[in-house]
Simulated scan of single mutants.
Amino acid sequence: MVAQGFVVDLNKPLVFQVGHLGEAYDEWVHQPIVSREGPRFFANDVMEALTRTVWWVIPTIWIPVVCYFAAMSARMGLVIPEVVSLLFLGVFLWTLVEYTLHRFLFHIKTTSYWGNTAHYLLHGCHHKHPMDGLRLVFPPAATAILLVPFWNFVKLLSTPTTAPALFAGGLLGYVMYDCTHYYLHHGQPSNEVPKHLKKYHMNHHFRIQHKGYGITSSLWDRVFGTLPPSKEAKKSR
């Protein structure tokens, strides 16, 4: 790919190349390469390994943490129905966080060297290589770092007894999101709901990449007007 005189060599580690694309980066990164074999990111083997995560690591690590924080609220005196209600609320709030991050951070347009590089690491790589199965979920080390400010934010919004259960619900929502995201790319759903979600998300990757930011549902796309138009609607224009 030639952009502004710079050639991205797909046979070499990509992360420190893509920044040189400048203003052409956004167009380049939204031209997907459909291959199950992902590219190499870094020449350093340790850094490269940190970018690869198998999907089942996410529930294995984080579901016990969800249970721990939910139990913390129960130990502080909340009854089980209250804990469950807060878990559901946390999951619901996560869907808004999911939409907001995807729309305003993951799809931010960058042109500088470090801006392009950071965006590629965060989300651009997923649009360039959407079938890379080892980079579909967020690395646990990065998640652990981000959970610290998230926990402090939840504590500001709630009481000491409700904060752990609400935090647990948000974390559960994240686990559901990451596992759903992997399934939408690599699963073969037979039921109507997951089939619709898969079609909805593939539409975001391959047809209208600036619409359809929801992963686990299209709720917030409907609320905020980013629902992609149907093929029939586009043909009638």
Rank of each mutant, 00 (worst) to 15 (best):
M1W: 07
A3W: 14
Q4L: 05
Q4D: 07
Q4M: 07
Q4T: 00
G5H: 01
F6T: 01
V7C: 15
N11G: 07
P13R: 08
F16L: 03
Q17R: 10
D26L: 04
E27I: 04
V29F: 05
P32W: 07
P32H: 07
P32M: 02
V34S: 01
S35G: 01
S35E: 13
E37K: 11
G38M: 05
R40H: 08
R40G: 09
R40Y: 00
F41H: 12
F41C: 09
F42P: 09
A43T: 10
A43W: 09
N44H: 09
N44T: 07
D45Q: 15
A49E: 12
A49G: 08
L50P: 02
L50D: 02
R52W: 05
R52H: 09
W55D: 08
W55M: 07
V57R: 11
I58E: 14
I63T: 10
I63E: 15
P64N: 08
C67Q: 14
F69A: 06
F69R: 15
R75P: 00
V83A: 13
V83D: 10
S85W: 09
L87G: 05
G90N: 05
G90S: 04
V91F: 14
L93T: 01
L96W: 04
T100W: 10
L101G: 11
L101T: 14
F104P: 00
K109S: 11
T110Y: 04
S112G: 14
S112R: 14
Y113H: 03
W114C: 06
N116V: 12
T117A: 06
H119Y: 03
H119L: 04
H119P: 00
Y120T: 04
L121C: 02
G124L: 01
H126N: 13
H126M: 13
H126D: 11
H126K: 02
K128I: 06
L134Y: 12
L136T: 15
F138G: 07
F138V: 12
P139M: 06
T143F: 09
L146W: 11
L146I: 00
V154A: 07
L156W: 08
T162Q: 15
A163W: 08
A163E: 12
P164S: 14
A168Q: 05
G170C: 05
G170S: 02
L171G: 14
Y174E: 14
Y174D: 14
D178S: 12
C179D: 11
T180C: 13
L184E: 15
L184A: 07
H186M: 05
G187T: 04
P189H: 14
P189N: 03
P189F: 13
E192C: 15
V193A: 04
K195M: 13
H196N: 09
L197V: 00
K198P: 05
K199S: 15
K199W: 12
K199M: 15
Y200R: 05
Y200P: 12
Y200Q: 09
H201V: 01
M202H: 09
H204S: 02
H205T: 03
I208G: 03
I208A: 10
I208W: 12
G214P: 11
I215G: 14
S217W: 01
S217T: 06
S218H: 03
W220D: 05
R222S: 15
R222F: 03
F224I: 05
F224S: 01
P228F: 04
P229T: 03
P229D: 11
S230G: 13
K231V: 01
A233T: 13
A233C: 00
R237Y: 03
